[in-house]
Simulated scan of single mutants.
Amino acid sequence: MAPPIDISSLPGPAQKLVDPSAPPKLQELAARGVAPGLKPPAMLAVVVLLAKSERADVAATARATLAALPPPLLAGALASDLHPAVIDALARASEGKLDVLDKLVTMPRVDLETIEHLARTGTEAITELVATNEARLLAHPRLIELLYMNRATRMSTADRIVDLARRNGLELSGIPAFREAAAALEGELIPEASEEPTPDDVLFTETAALADALASPAPEDTHEASDEGAEAVKPKFKPLYKLIADMSISQKVRRAQLGSKEERLLLVRDRNRLVASAVARSPMLQEDDVNLITKNRNVSEEVLRILGSNAEWLKSYIIKRNLVENPKTPLSLSTRLIPLLRDADVRQLAKSKNVTAAIQEAARRHLDRKKQ
Protein backbone atom coordinates (compact mmCIF):
# COMPACT_ATOMS: atom_id res chain seq x y z
CA MET A 1 0.00 0.00 0.00
CA ALA A 2 1.23 3.48 -0.85
CA PRO A 3 2.50 5.27 2.27
CA PRO A 4 0.06 7.87 3.61
CA ILE A 5 0.67 11.56 3.04
CA ASP A 6 2.47 13.16 5.96
CA ILE A 7 0.35 16.24 6.56
CA SER A 8 3.20 17.94 8.41
CA SER A 9 5.24 17.86 5.19
CA LEU A 10 2.68 20.05 3.40
CA PRO A 11 2.89 23.85 3.25
CA GLY A 12 1.18 25.65 6.13
CA PRO A 13 -1.88 26.80 4.11
CA ALA A 14 -2.41 23.22 2.87
CA GLN A 15 -2.26 21.87 6.43
CA LYS A 16 -4.99 24.31 7.48
CA LEU A 17 -7.21 23.27 4.58
CA VAL A 18 -7.16 19.58 5.50
CA ASP A 19 -7.60 20.19 9.24
CA PRO A 20 -10.98 18.73 10.33
CA SER A 21 -11.79 22.04 12.04
CA ALA A 22 -11.33 24.07 8.82
CA PRO A 23 -14.43 26.05 7.72
CA PRO A 24 -16.67 23.84 5.55
CA LYS A 25 -16.95 26.42 2.77
CA LEU A 26 -13.17 26.76 2.61
CA GLN A 27 -12.76 22.99 2.40
CA GLU A 28 -15.45 22.80 -0.27
CA LEU A 29 -13.45 25.22 -2.43
CA ALA A 30 -10.23 23.30 -1.79
CA ALA A 31 -12.02 20.07 -2.73
CA ARG A 32 -12.74 21.72 -6.11
CA GLY A 33 -9.02 22.38 -6.55
CA VAL A 34 -9.24 26.05 -5.67
CA ALA A 35 -6.70 27.35 -3.15
CA PRO A 36 -4.75 30.42 -4.27
CA GLY A 37 -1.03 30.25 -3.63
CA LEU A 38 -0.69 26.46 -3.50
CA LYS A 39 1.49 24.78 -6.12
CA PRO A 40 -0.07 21.87 -8.08
CA PRO A 41 1.58 19.01 -6.08
CA ALA A 42 0.41 20.47 -2.75
CA MET A 43 -3.03 21.32 -4.17
CA LEU A 44 -3.47 17.79 -5.49
CA ALA A 45 -2.35 16.33 -2.14
CA VAL A 46 -5.04 18.42 -0.46
CA VAL A 47 -7.69 17.11 -2.86
CA VAL A 48 -6.57 13.51 -2.23
CA LEU A 49 -6.74 14.00 1.54
CA LEU A 50 -10.14 15.67 1.34
CA ALA A 51 -11.48 12.76 -0.72
CA LYS A 52 -11.36 10.84 2.58
CA SER A 53 -12.90 13.64 4.64
CA GLU A 54 -15.55 12.80 7.22
CA ARG A 55 -17.60 15.60 5.67
CA ALA A 56 -19.51 13.63 3.04
CA ASP A 57 -20.12 16.60 0.75
CA VAL A 58 -16.46 17.60 0.80
CA ALA A 59 -15.31 14.03 0.14
CA ALA A 60 -17.73 13.63 -2.79
CA THR A 61 -16.59 16.92 -4.31
CA ALA A 62 -12.92 15.97 -3.96
CA ARG A 63 -13.49 12.59 -5.64
CA ALA A 64 -15.29 14.30 -8.51
CA THR A 65 -12.39 16.74 -8.85
CA LEU A 66 -9.86 13.89 -9.04
CA ALA A 67 -11.86 12.37 -11.88
CA ALA A 68 -11.89 15.65 -13.80
CA LEU A 69 -8.97 17.82 -12.71
CA PRO A 70 -8.74 21.32 -14.18
CA PRO A 71 -6.16 21.15 -17.03
CA PRO A 72 -3.71 23.68 -15.48
CA LEU A 73 -3.71 21.76 -12.17
CA LEU A 74 -3.31 18.41 -13.92
CA ALA A 75 -0.50 19.61 -16.15
CA GLY A 76 1.38 21.14 -13.23
CA ALA A 77 0.96 17.99 -11.15
CA LEU A 78 2.15 15.65 -13.88
CA ALA A 79 5.28 17.72 -14.33
CA SER A 80 6.12 17.29 -10.63
CA ASP A 81 7.47 14.55 -8.37
CA LEU A 82 4.19 13.46 -6.79
CA HIS A 83 3.74 11.61 -3.51
CA PRO A 84 3.02 7.85 -3.99
CA ALA A 85 -0.45 8.19 -2.42
CA VAL A 86 -1.27 11.05 -4.80
CA ILE A 87 -0.08 9.01 -7.79
CA ASP A 88 -2.24 6.10 -6.64
CA ALA A 89 -5.37 8.19 -6.17
CA LEU A 90 -4.90 9.92 -9.51
CA ALA A 91 -4.23 6.62 -11.32
CA ARG A 92 -7.40 5.05 -9.94
CA ALA A 93 -9.41 8.11 -10.95
CA SER A 94 -7.89 8.31 -14.45
CA GLU A 95 -8.15 4.79 -15.81
CA GLY A 96 -9.60 5.99 -19.11
CA LYS A 97 -6.93 8.63 -19.64
CA LEU A 98 -3.89 7.04 -21.25
CA ASP A 99 -1.95 10.28 -21.52
CA VAL A 100 -2.23 10.72 -17.74
CA LEU A 101 -1.44 7.10 -16.90
CA ASP A 102 1.52 7.08 -19.27
CA LYS A 103 3.16 9.72 -17.10
CA LEU A 104 2.05 8.25 -13.77
CA VAL A 105 3.45 4.74 -14.36
CA THR A 106 6.90 6.16 -15.09
CA MET A 107 7.08 8.45 -12.05
CA PRO A 108 10.03 7.63 -9.76
CA ARG A 109 7.88 7.26 -6.63
CA VAL A 110 4.99 5.28 -8.08
CA ASP A 111 4.03 2.55 -5.61
CA LEU A 112 4.05 -1.10 -6.68
CA GLU A 113 0.46 -1.53 -5.50
CA THR A 114 -0.63 1.15 -7.96
CA ILE A 115 0.99 -0.74 -10.84
CA GLU A 116 -0.53 -4.00 -9.59
CA HIS A 117 -3.98 -2.40 -9.56
CA LEU A 118 -3.58 -1.29 -13.17
CA ALA A 119 -2.28 -4.71 -14.21
CA ARG A 120 -5.19 -6.45 -12.48
CA THR A 121 -8.05 -4.20 -13.64
CA GLY A 122 -6.75 -2.25 -16.62
CA THR A 123 -8.16 -2.21 -20.12
CA GLU A 124 -6.17 -3.48 -23.09
CA ALA A 125 -4.51 -0.10 -23.56
CA ILE A 126 -3.58 0.19 -19.89
CA THR A 127 -2.12 -3.31 -19.68
CA GLU A 128 0.01 -2.46 -22.71
CA LEU A 129 1.44 0.47 -20.75
CA VAL A 130 2.29 -1.72 -17.76
CA ALA A 131 3.75 -4.53 -19.88
CA THR A 132 6.33 -2.30 -21.61
CA ASN A 133 8.59 -2.06 -18.55
CA GLU A 134 10.31 -5.48 -18.65
CA ALA A 135 12.79 -4.58 -15.90
CA ARG A 136 9.90 -3.89 -13.52
CA LEU A 137 8.15 -7.12 -14.57
CA LEU A 138 11.24 -9.16 -13.78
CA ALA A 139 11.77 -7.37 -10.47
CA HIS A 140 8.12 -7.94 -9.52
CA PRO A 141 6.90 -11.17 -11.19
CA ARG A 142 3.47 -10.72 -9.57
CA LEU A 143 2.84 -8.14 -12.30
CA ILE A 144 3.30 -10.80 -14.98
CA GLU A 145 0.77 -13.00 -13.19
CA LEU A 146 -1.79 -10.20 -12.92
CA LEU A 147 -1.37 -9.18 -16.55
CA TYR A 148 -1.70 -12.75 -17.82
CA MET A 149 -4.84 -13.40 -15.75
CA ASN A 150 -6.44 -10.11 -16.83
CA ARG A 151 -8.77 -11.01 -19.70
CA ALA A 152 -8.20 -7.56 -21.26
CA THR A 153 -4.48 -8.18 -21.80
CA ARG A 154 -3.68 -8.96 -25.44
CA MET A 155 -2.79 -12.55 -26.21
CA SER A 156 0.44 -11.46 -27.90
CA THR A 157 1.38 -9.51 -24.77
CA ALA A 158 0.59 -12.50 -22.56
CA ASP A 159 2.86 -14.65 -24.72
CA ARG A 160 5.62 -12.07 -24.58
CA ILE A 161 5.63 -11.72 -20.79
CA VAL A 162 5.34 -15.47 -20.16
CA ASP A 163 8.28 -15.99 -22.51
CA LEU A 164 10.17 -13.29 -20.60
CA ALA A 165 9.53 -15.19 -17.36
CA ARG A 166 10.46 -18.52 -18.96
CA ARG A 167 13.75 -17.23 -20.34
CA ASN A 168 14.66 -15.79 -16.96
CA GLY A 169 13.88 -18.95 -15.02
CA LEU A 170 10.87 -17.61 -13.11
CA GLU A 171 8.17 -19.86 -11.66
CA LEU A 172 4.84 -18.04 -11.50
CA SER A 173 2.42 -19.71 -9.09
CA GLY A 174 -0.15 -16.97 -9.72
CA ILE A 175 -0.69 -18.44 -13.19
CA PRO A 176 -2.22 -21.86 -12.37
CA ALA A 177 -1.05 -23.47 -15.63
CA PHE A 178 2.20 -21.50 -15.94
CA ARG A 179 4.28 -24.55 -16.80
CA GLU A 180 1.87 -25.45 -19.58
CA ALA A 181 1.83 -21.85 -20.82
CA ALA A 182 5.63 -21.68 -20.82
CA ALA A 183 6.03 -25.09 -22.50
CA ALA A 184 3.61 -24.05 -25.24
CA LEU A 185 5.98 -21.24 -26.22
CA GLU A 186 9.13 -23.32 -26.56
CA GLY A 187 10.44 -22.97 -30.11
CA GLU A 188 7.73 -20.44 -31.02
CA LEU A 189 8.38 -17.04 -32.58
CA ILE A 190 7.16 -14.44 -30.10
CA PRO A 191 5.76 -11.28 -31.75
CA GLU A 192 7.27 -7.92 -30.86
CA ALA A 193 5.08 -5.33 -29.14
CA SER A 194 3.01 -3.35 -31.64
CA GLU A 195 0.51 -0.53 -31.55
CA GLU A 196 -2.14 -2.61 -33.31
CA PRO A 197 -3.43 -6.02 -32.18
CA THR A 198 -2.09 -9.03 -34.06
CA PRO A 199 -4.39 -11.51 -35.88
CA ASP A 200 -3.98 -13.86 -32.89
CA ASP A 201 -5.13 -11.05 -30.60
CA VAL A 202 -8.23 -10.55 -32.73
CA LEU A 203 -8.98 -14.29 -32.74
CA PHE A 204 -8.59 -14.43 -28.96
CA THR A 205 -10.98 -11.49 -28.49
CA GLU A 206 -13.56 -12.86 -30.94
CA THR A 207 -13.51 -16.23 -29.20
CA ALA A 208 -14.06 -14.59 -25.82
CA ALA A 209 -17.00 -12.60 -27.17
CA LEU A 210 -18.66 -15.66 -28.70
CA ALA A 211 -18.06 -17.73 -25.56
CA ASP A 212 -19.66 -15.01 -23.43
CA ALA A 213 -22.68 -14.97 -25.76
CA LEU A 214 -23.08 -18.75 -25.45
CA ALA A 215 -22.55 -18.85 -21.70
CA SER A 216 -25.38 -20.41 -19.72
CA PRO A 217 -25.83 -20.44 -15.94
CA ALA A 218 -26.88 -24.08 -16.03
CA PRO A 219 -24.22 -26.78 -16.50
CA GLU A 220 -24.40 -28.28 -19.97
CA ASP A 221 -21.91 -30.47 -21.77
CA THR A 222 -20.72 -29.24 -25.17
CA HIS A 223 -20.86 -32.73 -26.66
CA GLU A 224 -23.50 -35.35 -27.30
CA ALA A 225 -23.36 -39.00 -28.33
CA SER A 226 -23.83 -39.62 -32.04
CA ASP A 227 -25.89 -42.50 -33.42
CA GLU A 228 -22.68 -44.55 -33.56
CA GLY A 229 -21.95 -43.83 -29.91
CA ALA A 230 -19.06 -41.47 -30.61
CA GLU A 231 -18.92 -37.95 -29.18
CA ALA A 232 -19.89 -35.01 -31.39
CA VAL A 233 -19.97 -31.27 -30.69
CA LYS A 234 -23.50 -29.98 -30.19
CA PRO A 235 -24.63 -27.73 -33.08
CA LYS A 236 -24.84 -24.52 -31.03
CA PHE A 237 -21.21 -24.92 -29.90
CA LYS A 238 -19.75 -25.65 -33.34
CA PRO A 239 -18.91 -21.98 -34.16
CA LEU A 240 -17.00 -21.72 -30.87
CA TYR A 241 -15.32 -25.06 -31.53
CA LYS A 242 -14.13 -23.84 -34.94
CA LEU A 243 -12.63 -20.65 -33.51
CA ILE A 244 -10.82 -22.63 -30.82
CA ALA A 245 -9.55 -25.09 -33.43
CA ASP A 246 -7.77 -22.20 -35.19
CA MET A 247 -5.92 -21.18 -32.04
CA SER A 248 -2.30 -21.84 -31.17
CA ILE A 249 -1.49 -24.08 -28.20
CA SER A 250 -0.56 -21.01 -26.18
CA GLN A 251 -3.91 -19.38 -26.89
CA LYS A 252 -5.79 -22.54 -25.94
CA VAL A 253 -3.87 -22.80 -22.68
CA ARG A 254 -4.86 -19.25 -21.74
CA ARG A 255 -8.51 -19.72 -22.78
CA ALA A 256 -8.51 -22.89 -20.64
CA GLN A 257 -7.66 -20.75 -17.62
CA LEU A 258 -9.71 -17.63 -18.33
CA GLY A 259 -12.54 -18.74 -20.59
CA SER A 260 -16.12 -19.85 -20.05
CA LYS A 261 -17.22 -23.29 -18.90
CA GLU A 262 -18.22 -24.05 -22.49
CA GLU A 263 -14.67 -23.37 -23.62
CA ARG A 264 -13.25 -25.52 -20.85
CA LEU A 265 -15.51 -28.43 -21.76
CA LEU A 266 -14.31 -28.19 -25.36
CA LEU A 267 -10.65 -27.74 -24.46
CA VAL A 268 -10.51 -30.54 -21.88
CA ARG A 269 -10.91 -32.96 -24.79
CA ASP A 270 -8.04 -31.39 -26.74
CA ARG A 271 -5.45 -33.90 -27.89
CA ASN A 272 -2.62 -31.71 -26.68
CA ARG A 273 -1.88 -32.61 -23.07
CA LEU A 274 -0.78 -29.04 -22.24
CA VAL A 275 -4.22 -27.71 -23.17
CA ALA A 276 -6.20 -30.42 -21.38
CA SER A 277 -4.04 -30.09 -18.26
CA ALA A 278 -4.51 -26.32 -18.25
CA VAL A 279 -8.27 -26.88 -18.02
CA ALA A 280 -7.79 -29.11 -14.97
CA ARG A 281 -5.75 -26.35 -13.30
CA SER A 282 -8.11 -23.51 -14.21
CA PRO A 283 -9.13 -21.23 -11.31
CA MET A 284 -12.45 -20.77 -13.12
CA LEU A 285 -13.50 -24.41 -12.70
CA GLN A 286 -16.72 -24.97 -10.78
CA GLU A 287 -17.93 -28.16 -9.13
CA ASP A 288 -20.52 -28.67 -11.89
CA ASP A 289 -17.73 -28.50 -14.49
CA VAL A 290 -15.63 -31.03 -12.61
CA ASN A 291 -18.62 -33.33 -12.25
CA LEU A 292 -19.12 -33.33 -16.03
CA ILE A 293 -15.41 -33.78 -16.74
CA THR A 294 -14.87 -36.66 -14.31
CA LYS A 295 -17.87 -38.50 -15.75
CA ASN A 296 -16.41 -38.30 -19.25
CA ARG A 297 -14.50 -41.36 -20.41
CA ASN A 298 -12.81 -39.50 -23.25
CA VAL A 299 -10.74 -37.14 -21.11
CA SER A 300 -7.11 -37.96 -20.46
CA GLU A 301 -5.65 -39.77 -17.48
CA GLU A 302 -3.58 -36.68 -16.67
CA VAL A 303 -6.69 -34.50 -16.37
CA LEU A 304 -8.31 -36.96 -13.97
CA ARG A 305 -5.08 -37.23 -11.98
CA ILE A 306 -4.89 -33.46 -11.54
CA LEU A 307 -8.55 -33.16 -10.56
CA GLY A 308 -8.26 -36.13 -8.22
CA SER A 309 -5.31 -34.50 -6.48
CA ASN A 310 -7.32 -31.39 -5.65
CA ALA A 311 -8.65 -31.56 -2.10
CA GLU A 312 -11.38 -29.04 -2.93
CA TRP A 313 -12.95 -31.31 -5.55
CA LEU A 314 -12.65 -34.40 -3.36
CA LYS A 315 -15.05 -32.80 -0.89
CA SER A 316 -17.76 -33.77 -3.39
CA TYR A 317 -18.99 -37.33 -3.03
CA ILE A 318 -20.24 -37.41 -6.64
CA ILE A 319 -16.80 -36.43 -7.96
CA LYS A 320 -15.10 -39.12 -5.87
CA ARG A 321 -17.52 -41.70 -7.24
CA ASN A 322 -17.06 -40.45 -10.80
CA LEU A 323 -13.30 -40.79 -10.49
CA VAL A 324 -13.52 -44.36 -9.20
CA GLU A 325 -15.94 -45.36 -11.96
CA ASN A 326 -13.96 -43.71 -14.77
CA PRO A 327 -11.61 -46.28 -16.36
CA LYS A 328 -9.18 -43.49 -17.33
CA THR A 329 -8.53 -42.56 -13.70
CA PRO A 330 -5.09 -43.78 -12.55
CA LEU A 331 -5.58 -47.01 -10.60
CA SER A 332 -3.58 -45.74 -7.62
CA LEU A 333 -6.01 -42.83 -7.27
CA SER A 334 -9.14 -44.91 -7.77
CA THR A 335 -8.17 -47.51 -5.18
CA ARG A 336 -7.35 -44.76 -2.68
CA LEU A 337 -10.85 -43.35 -3.10
CA ILE A 338 -12.79 -46.62 -2.81
CA PRO A 339 -12.72 -46.64 1.03
CA LEU A 340 -14.30 -43.17 0.94
CA LEU A 341 -17.40 -44.42 -0.87
CA ARG A 342 -20.61 -45.68 0.71
CA ASP A 343 -20.84 -49.44 1.17
CA ALA A 344 -23.78 -49.66 -1.24
CA ASP A 345 -21.73 -48.02 -4.00
CA VAL A 346 -18.72 -50.23 -3.27
CA ARG A 347 -20.90 -53.36 -3.51
CA GLN A 348 -22.19 -52.12 -6.85
CA LEU A 349 -18.62 -51.55 -8.07
CA ALA A 350 -17.64 -55.08 -7.07
CA LYS A 351 -20.05 -56.54 -9.61
CA SER A 352 -20.31 -53.74 -12.18
CA LYS A 353 -19.38 -54.43 -15.79
CA ASN A 354 -18.83 -50.69 -16.37
CA VAL A 355 -15.59 -50.55 -14.39
CA THR A 356 -12.27 -52.32 -14.88
CA ALA A 357 -11.52 -55.72 -13.39
CA ALA A 358 -8.92 -54.06 -11.16
CA ILE A 359 -11.56 -51.77 -9.63
CA GLN A 360 -13.96 -54.69 -9.14
CA GLU A 361 -11.24 -56.59 -7.31
CA ALA A 362 -10.26 -53.58 -5.20
CA ALA A 363 -13.91 -53.09 -4.22
CA ARG A 364 -14.22 -56.76 -3.21
CA ARG A 365 -11.06 -56.59 -1.14
CA HIS A 366 -12.34 -53.49 0.64
CA LEU A 367 -15.65 -55.20 1.45
CA ASP A 368 -13.79 -58.29 2.72
CA ARG A 369 -11.62 -56.17 5.00
CA LYS A 370 -14.70 -54.50 6.45
CA LYS A 371 -16.30 -57.88 7.18
CA GLN A 372 -13.22 -58.96 9.08
Rank of each mutant, 00 (worst) to 15 (best):
S248W: 02
A358I: 06
G76M: 07
Y241L: 09
M247R: 03
P24S: 10
N354Q: 07
L189I: 09
L69A: 04
S332C: 11
Q286K: 13
R151W: 07
T294W: 06
A135S: 14
Q27P: 00
L69T: 08
D200S: 14
A182T: 06
T106R: 09
E312F: 06
V48R: 04
K295E: 15
S352D: 05
V290M: 10
P219A: 14
A152C: 14
E231Y: 12
A75F: 03
L66H: 09
P197D: 12
E196Q: 15
A56K: 12
A213K: 05
D88H: 13
L341D: 06
N326Q: 04
L143C: 07
N298S: 13
E124K: 08
P197K: 02
V303Q: 08
D111Q: 12
D345Y: 01
T335Y: 03
E134S: 04
Q286C: 08
E228A: 14
K103A: 11
S173Y: 10
K52T: 09
P13R: 01
T198G: 03
D19W: 00
P191N: 05
D57S: 10
V162C: 11
T106K: 15
V110E: 13
L314V: 01
R365S: 12
E301H: 09
V290Y: 03
F178K: 05
V130Q: 08
L129A: 11
G12E: 07
D57T: 10
V34F: 13
A77S: 15
A357D: 11
R347D: 15
I244S: 02
V268A: 13
V202D: 15
V290K: 03
Q27K: 09
A45P: 06
A91N: 11
G187T: 01
K236R: 13
